[in-house]
């Protein structure tokens, strides 16, 4: 009986840990009061067409360089876009004056620091540690 329970717990733990863990977390400044974004809205923010959070506050978008593996994972897994598509969207806007480029940071450490220090910021990292002063945003 006891062995059965232990086995059951072990099975549950194994099942949970084998679930496909997302390699990227979307993060925001802790003052952002929105825990969830739908995919269309998140795409609007990261393609720099949407300039506000759903509650009206100004959004600041931070990204990693195009060739950063976490940027690739974020583009494809979260936004369902290839990184070159995002770059084309930004370029089209930046060089026709119809929009601005996101703020590019060099590393995940800098991403965490800038997002934690900029009210209204949104960004992404591979992994968030419990003590990181950022809010995790669910995109679905």
């Amino acid at each position: 009986m006891r062995l059965g329970r232990v086995l059951g717990i072990m099975l549950a733990v194994w099942l949970l840990s084998s679930l496909p863990a997302r390699a990227v977390e979307v993060i925001a400044h802790p003052s952002v009061a929105i825990p969830r974004l739908n995919l269309t809205y998140a795409k609007g923010l990261f393609s720099m067409r949407q300039t506000r959070w759903p509650d009206g506050t100004r959004a600041w978008v931070f990204v990693l360089p195009d060739n950063h593996p976490v940027h690739g994972a974020f583009s494809k897994e979260v936004l369902n876009l290839y990184p070159y598509q995002l770059r084309q969207t930004w370029d089209r806007q930046v060089y026709s004056g119809t929009g601005q480029a996101p703020i590019e940071v060099a590393s995940e450490e800098e991403m965490l620091r800038r997002v934690a220090n900029t009210p209204g910021a949104i960004g992404y990292v591979g992994r968030v540690n419990p003590h990181d002063p950022v809010r995790i945003i669910t995109v679905d």
């Binding site: 300039t51 506000r52 100004r58 959004a59 930046v94 060089y95 004056g97 119809t98 929009g99 601005q100």
Partner: peptide, 18 residues
Amino acid sequence: LGANVSWRPDPDWLLSAQ
């Protein structure tokens, strides 16, 4: 050869020139 400047003083306003 081109250069541009853009300024978004507010989320709803954008001024840009190239």
